[in-house]
Simulated assay, not measured.
Amino acid sequence: MAEFQVVVSDPASGKTYQREVEGQDANRFLGRELGEEVDGAAVGLDGFTLEITGGSDNAGRPMREDVAGANLKELLLEGGVGYKPSREGERKRITVRGREVSDETAQVNVKVVDAEEGEVAEAYGEGGEDDEDADDE
C-alpha cells in the first residue's frame, strides 16, 4: 500500500502545504514521472491541477529527471539535484532515485498550476495572509 507525504507549493502566494496521502489517493501518483500533471483531488484540491516537481525516498535520496524509471542509480555529479559541491570543479559519486514515483517514494513535491493567489489557502480552509502557521501543518 503506497503512502506519501505530498508537499504542495502555491507559486502565487509562495506558501507550501503538507498532506499525507494513502490508499486510492496515493495510487494517483504511482507510475507518474517528474513534470507530469495530476488531479489535485488526491490532496484535497478539487478542480486544481498539480505538476510533479520532485521528491525523495525514505533515505532522503532525491529524484532526478535525467534518470529513467524508479530505480537507484549512482551518478558522478558536478552539481545540481542531489549534490552541491563545496569548491569549483569538485565531483562526487551520489546515489539518486529515478524520475518515476513508486512505492519506494516517501515524499512527492508538487506545485499548483494555474491558480490565483489565495485560492489554495481557501481550499485548505486557511485564513490567508494573517495565518502565519500555514507551512507548519
Rank of each mutant, 00 (worst) to 15 (best):
K84P: 04
D46A: 15
G80C: 05
K92N: 13
L77K: 08
D46Y: 13
Y124L: 12
N58M: 08
R91W: 03
V67K: 07
A123C: 04
N71W: 07
G79P: 04
G89Y: 09
P62G: 02
D136S: 13
V81E: 10
E90I: 04
V110E: 01
E104D: 10
R97Q: 07
S102T: 06
A68Q: 15
G44F: 00
E78F: 11
A134C: 03
D46P: 05
E137P: 02
G69E: 02
D46M: 12
G128M: 06
A42C: 06
D131R: 02
Y124R: 01
E117S: 08
D39W: 06
G14K: 08
A41I: 03
S13G: 10
L50H: 07
G44I: 05
A121S: 11
R64F: 12
E3C: 07
R61F: 00
E100T: 09
D10H: 01
Q18A: 15
G128A: 02
D133G: 04
L77S: 01
D57K: 02
E90N: 00
D10N: 08
R93M: 14
E119F: 03
G82A: 08
E36W: 02
Y83G: 04
A106E: 14
E104A: 11
N58F: 12
K15W: 09
E33M: 14
V108K: 04
S86V: 00
V67T: 03
V21M: 05
D130Q: 13
P85F: 06
F4L: 00
G82K: 04
T95W: 13
V6D: 10
I94S: 07
R32L: 14
A59Y: 15
E20C: 04
D135N: 05
N27R: 14
R93H: 08
A68V: 13
T53F: 01
N109Y: 01
R19I: 15
G89M: 10
S102G: 15
A115S: 12
A59D: 13
V112M: 14
Q5S: 13
E117L: 05
G54I: 04
E37L: 13
T95E: 14
E100K: 09
G125K: 08
D131K: 07
A42Q: 00
E116G: 11
E90L: 09
D133P: 00
R91F: 08
G127N: 15
G55A: 09
L77H: 00
G35R: 03
V21F: 03
S86L: 08
A134L: 04
G127W: 09
L72H: 12
R19L: 12
N58R: 07
D130H: 11
S102Q: 09
A70W: 10
